[in-house]
Design a protein around this nucleic acid. Structure first.
Length: 424
RNA sequence: GGUGAGAUGGCUGAGUGGUCGAAAGCACUGGUUUGCUAAACCGGCGUACGCUGUAAAGGUGUACCGAGGGUUCGAAUCCCUCUCUCACCGCCA
């Protein structure tokens, strides 16, 4: 969430930058300010009453110690206490109202993020690899996987409904090989520490990263409990140090985690269609960094390159785009997407989203570090990036490395993990 | 799931209704001193928010002793609920 001090001090500028996301959000700032003003006024009043109460209570104690009568003072203090109880409730109400509005306000876009409203306005930053030339018409992944018998779409639907898939035989092995390949790459070559987190988390955790309270309909909830299936490893891993005050030397932190991700995808285009492009459960290797504020931009660029490396090693063509202000996720200040080329679709598919959440999430989860220079506790910047998501990677891999006979070549760096050089 | 014991500041650990934000020790840190390593001594050392205020600071108030509620003029201390930890039993991958 945004810093209330910043909102108070620089109201106009905060509103201006919020408005670049979508028109109308900036009015929430006025709501926050209204609650804030009332809250502080009452707080001052109730706190001075409490000071009075504390003083009187002490005097009662001293009178009684001396054996004197304190009935009058007790009666008077009782009145003050009652009044305090009343005001405390009002203050709490304003605090809650203010927090609720704050939680519904998205992060401020980074200064360098291009203005825009929709995904069509996201500028391309660069490309990697090159499109493969085919001497035949490349098939799409559904045809390829069905013929090879490595993905069973029908039985996935039978078990759990549309948007669920079953990997089989070498398909299952490919999934496992890719996960291990990416985990090893990021831990060995890129310096991340592997985390294996819970797949179920409570409400507070989801509030910390910004999925709640606004996007509950996108989550799967566990009946008769307050637990939810994680939509991404970002949720448990970014929250790992919540409510902590880290030592400065603990930073930077770099975590990598493989988890399945569960998304209801309510209202999303493409759900219910066959294939791997949009599913309710998918595997993903996720990167998280927790860094000092002034190291955020550099860390962001590095993470992007960490994710790109996966595609480079697998010989895939891709492009990097930067999301415009209107297309960015709620909690993020700056986001790059990596889109991989899928010849069978004749389209780019998003396989990674690399974002800088600045201090927005660390504020929500009360994560700080002791900054020796500033002599105070500072909210670190939290970054997350897919490194990368599996289903669309598999699509691009199969469609790119397919042969005219329908077999699939396995890129060399993946072969030790897969245990073979092709799928036939 | 059952029974019992617990939860206090970075750590250990006192404190069972009044001047306790909390003893003491350790750790950390500033200083003094002894020719170094080190020791001794003196001091500092939680977080959040409000008010005030400065160039920086500072001053002041409130809250926080697992969480939430209650009793009381007054709660770390008494009562209730919950969470977690430990031990044993049961069950189980």
């Amino acid at each position: 969430m945004l810093d209330i001090q910043l909102i108070r001090k620089d109201t106009a500028r905060v509103k201006e930058r919020l408005a670049t996301r979508f028109q109308g959000v900036e009015s929430k700032i006025d709501e926050v300010m209204a609650f804030d003003e009332k809250r502080r006024k009452l707080l001052t009043e109730v706190e001075s009453l409490k000071a009075e109460k504390n003083k009187s209570a002490k005097e009662v104690g001293m009178l009684k110690a001396k054996g004197e009568n304190a009935d009058a003072l007790i009666a008077k203090t009782k009145e003050v206490t009652d009044r305090i109880a009343q005001l405390d409730q009002e203050v709490a109400k304003f605090e809650e109202d203010q927090r609720n509005v704050l939680l519904a306000i998205p992060n401020l876009p980074h200064e360098c993020v291009p203005l825009g409203k929709t995904a069509q306005e996201n500028p391309e930053i660069r490309q990697g690899g090159s499109k493969k030339d085919f001497a035949f018409a490349p098939k799409n992944h559904i045809e390829l996987t069905t013929k090879l018998g490595i993905i069973d779409f029908e039985r996935g639907t039978k078990l759990s409904g549309s948007g669920f898939i079953v990997y089989r035989g070498l398909g299952a092995r490919l999934e496992r090989a890719l996960i291990n390949f990416m985990l090893d790459l990021h831990t060995r070559d890129h310096g991340y520490t592997e985390i294996h987190p819970p797949y179920l988390v409570n409400r507070d955790i989801l509030e910390g990263t910004g999925q709640l309270p606004k996007f509950e309909d996108q989550l799967y909830a566990i009946k008769d409990s307050d637990l939810f299936l994680i939509p991404t490893a970002e949720v448990p891993v970014a929250n790992l140090h919540r409510d902590e005050i880290l030592k400065e030397e603990q930073l930077p932190i770099q975590y990598v985690a493989y988890t399945p991700c569960f998304r209801s995808e309510a209202g999303a285009a493409g759900i219910g269609t066959r294939g791997l492009l949009r599913v309710h459960q998918f595997d993903k290797v996720e990167l998280i960094r927790i860094v000092k504020p002034d190291e955020g931009d550099k860390a962001h660029e590095e993470m992007l390159m960490n994710a790109e490396k996966v595609l480079q090693l697998l010989g895939l063509h891709y492009r990097v785009i930067i999301l415009c202000t209107g297309d960015m996720g709620f909690a993020m200040s700056k986001t790059y997407d990596i889109e991989v080329w899928a010849p069978g679709q004749n389209a780019y598919l998003e396989v990674s989203s690399v974002s800088n959440a600045s201090d927005y999430q660390s504020r929500r989860m009360a994560l700080r570090y002791k900054d020796t220079a500033a002599k105070s506790n500072v909210f670190p910047h939290i970054l997350n990036g897919s490194g990368v998501a599996l289903p669309r990677l598999v699509v691009a891999l199969l469609e790119t490395w397919q042969q005219s006979d329908g077999s699939i070549l396995i890129p060399e760096p993946l072969q030790p993990y897969f245990g073979a050089d092709k799928i036939v």
